[in-house]
Simulated scan of single mutants.
Amino acid sequence: MSPKEIFSSACSRKPEIHYPCVWQYKVIGKELHLVKNAIKEICAPVPVTITYSHSSASGKYHSFNAEIEVQDEEARLSIFRALHDHAAVKFVL
């Protein structure tokens, strides 16, 4: 198998995640307090650790790391979708 085929095969496979596990989301938005409140609201009642990460060069965007224990894939994806759909959030990674 060529290196290109190995890379292609590895990229097309779904990662193996063992639940429950601690998962980290990178959440980006414009208003610091609105983004932080959105993370808390969406993750409640499960405790979430929120740490400030970075500001864009212009100071227009701010990012946070949100670390939370997820019980299964459904919970992990549900939080991702809720963050993605929140008005205060511009991007989720």
Rank of each mutant, 00 (worst) to 15 (best):
A82L: 09
P47I: 03
A44N: 07
S12K: 15
K26S: 08
T51G: 03
D85K: 14
A87C: 06
K26Y: 05
D72C: 08
I50H: 07
A66V: 09
G59E: 02
V89A: 01
C43M: 12
I39R: 04
L34S: 08
A44R: 14
S2A: 05
L34H: 10
S78E: 09
I42L: 03
W23K: 01
P47Y: 04
D85T: 15
R13V: 11
S2C: 06
K4Y: 14
S2G: 14
K40M: 08
C43R: 02
E31G: 06
I42G: 01
H54Y: 03
D85A: 13
K90T: 15
S56P: 09
E69W: 05
L34I: 15
V22C: 02
E41F: 11
S8Q: 10
Q71R: 07
L93D: 00
Y19W: 02
K40V: 12
I6G: 03
K26L: 08
I68L: 00
A10D: 02
I50V: 14
C21H: 09
C11S: 14
S56L: 10
N37G: 10
G59F: 10
L83P: 02
Y61G: 06
I17G: 09
P20S: 09
E73R: 15
K26I: 14
L77N: 14
L34T: 12
T51Q: 07
A75S: 07
R81M: 03
S58I: 08
V35P: 06
I42Q: 02
Y52R: 08
Q71I: 03
F91T: 09
E73I: 11
A82H: 03
S2T: 15
G59N: 04
L32C: 00
F80V: 11
S53A: 11
S78H: 07
V89Y: 04
E74K: 14
V92P: 07
A10N: 09
K36A: 12
I79R: 10
P45C: 01
E16I: 15
S78N: 07
A82M: 05
H86W: 04
Y25V: 06
L83D: 00
A57E: 12
K40T: 10
V35G: 00
H86N: 04
K4C: 12
C11V: 13
S63Y: 08
R76Y: 06
I68E: 11
S63Q: 04
F80Q: 04
S53N: 08
I28L: 02
R76G: 02
A75C: 10
I42A: 05
T49S: 13
A57Y: 08
F80T: 10
K30D: 13
L77G: 05
K40L: 05
L93A: 05
I42N: 03
K14M: 06
V89I: 15
K30E: 07
S63K: 08
V48S: 13
V92S: 01
S9Y: 13
S9N: 12
A38W: 07
H18N: 01
Y25N: 02
A44M: 03
K40H: 14
